[in-house]
Write a protein that binds this DNA or RNA. Structure first.
Length: 276
DNA sequence: TTCCTGTGAG
DNA sequence: CTCACAGGAA
């Protein structure tokens, strides 16, 4: 593991802050410290480009301005506002989150790693991001843009850089006085670097090549959800509309039921109205 | 550690 | 067709 000299930490920090002063990006979720709004943005930003999130985030916050409004919304309405973002399971997590926070934490978004991670849809990254962006805590935030920055600056020649090596550097360099903006700055730098020089995260041990989408279960799953948003239907109808073998469709339906995205009522599959 | 996942851009 | 968006759950 690398240990950086104080002088090099300062140099790196100055470089990042200087970049940020000139090229830092602005997003609607950076203009608030409302933990609920930041929570929404972080869930939306998982696996989704920031530019695509902007209009969705604004519409979502307008329609569900508080944790309570979100918790009490009809799930189908949520899915409507989620259209175009992809990974609609996150909409489910988000409502489950809102309900859990109201029930267990009196409507206050928790601020400790352990508690945040215990909530649905929040893992290590999102927990750390909420700590930094909502509560200005010097948590350890690692994601693709930040990985790119550290690989480029500290491991330019090395193949297969492990997250563990990067994490020690993140902890050494984080600006404890202003972690909120520090991580914005790192992410902005990484994002712009990627667009200019390509993705050096491919040097990361954790890089994986994407599997094919067309004909995949994930595509069919998306088709099923879209069908059911329009109309509840019986299995035969679904099989008829999605021209795939029954053996491929029913496991997907079972899974959707298991994660409480859809239910069966009077023999028809339908999007759940309200979470229980 | 492995499996899972929606949509859009090029 | 390939890739960006890879983090969360089991």
């Amino acid at each position: 593991m690398k240990t950086l000299k104080t002088k090099n930490i300062k140099l790196f920090q100055s470089f990042i802050w200087n970049f940020y002063a000139h090229f830092g990006r602005d997003f609607p979720w950076r203009q608030t410290t409302n933990p609920y709004h930041i929570l929404v943005s972080e869930i939306m930003l998982q696996q989704t480009q920031a530019n695509r999130v902007i209009p969705k985030y604004e519409a979502f916050i307008k329609n569900f301005p508080t944790l309570e409004k979100l918790a009490n919304a009809e799930f189908k309405t949520l899915l409507y506002y989620w259209q175009g973002l992809g990974y609609n399971r996150r909409a489910l997590y988000l409502q489950q989150l809102a309900q859990a926070i109201i029930k267990k934490y009196h409507g206050q978004v928790p601020s400790t790693q352990k508690t945040l991670v215990s909530l649905p849809g929040i893992g290590r990254y999102t927990a750390a991001a909420i700590q930094a962006f909502a509560f200005n805590q010097a948590s350890m935030v690692i994601e693709t843009n930040i990985r790119t920055v550290f690989i480029y600056h500290f491991f330019p020649k090395q193949k297969q850089v492990s997250d563990q090596e990067i994490i020690t550097l993140i902890n050494q360099t984080v600006d404890k006085k202003n972690p909120r903006e520090w991580y914005w700055a790192l992410m902005d730098y990484g994002a712009i670097m990627k667009s200019l020089i390509g993705n050096s995260s491919q040097q990361s041990k954790h890089y994986t090549k994407q599997s094919k989408f067309v004909g995949s279960n994930r595509q069919i799953r998306g088709q099923i959800v879209r069908l059911l948003i329009a109309n509840p239907m019986v299995l035969e109808e679904i099989l008829q509309k999605i021209k795939k073998p029954k053996g491929q469709i029913t496991p997907i339906l079972d899974k959707l039921v298991a994660e409480k995205m859809i239910t069966i009522r009077k023999g028809k599959y339908q999007i759940v109205t309200r979470l229980e």
